[in-house]
């Protein structure tokens, strides 16, 4: 579970939890999307490797949703993360 002091929760799907030491929720004390992405790059390098291409962009087979909205669609003024925000990683899965 995430620490109580964290303002933002990153939800990690089980398909990627091996990259986070089996944590499915990671708390971050950040206030913008860009701060969050920097913290993920620094603190969770294995997960970051799956999320980000070498040019820093989010890979085409994974999505990040900020409070239900695709992070790629957020305009400059919409990149604040109010306390309690949930950022969800949605991976490609093909099982049927």
């Amino acid at each position: 579970m995430m620490p109580n002091s964290a303002s933002v929760t990153l939800r990690v799907p089980t398909s990627l939890s091996e990259l986070t030491g089996d944590r499915d929720r990671i708390g971050f004390d950040v206030s913008t999307v860009d701060e969050l992405l920097d913290r993920v790059r620094n603190d969770e390098p294995l997960l970051a490797g799956h999320l980000f291409a070498d040019d820093g962009r989010i890979r085409g087979y994974v999505n990040l949703f900020v409070n239900g909205v695709d992070v790629r669609l957020l305009e400059a003024g919409e990149r604040d993360l109010p306390p309690g925000s949930v950022v969800t990683i949605v991976p490609s899965v093909a099982g049927g």
Partner: peptide, 29 residues
């Protein structure tokens, strides 16, 4: 619909002006 371990995803794609699967996942892993 797609599943993995304990999690699943469901949506409707290709309907009218709605998105398609590639709008969600541009590239395959």
């Amino acid at each position: 619909g797609a599943i993995f371990r304990f999690e699943g995803q469901v949506s409707v794609f290709g309907r009218g002006d709605g998105p398609c699967y590639r709008c969600l996942f541009r590239d395959p892993p």
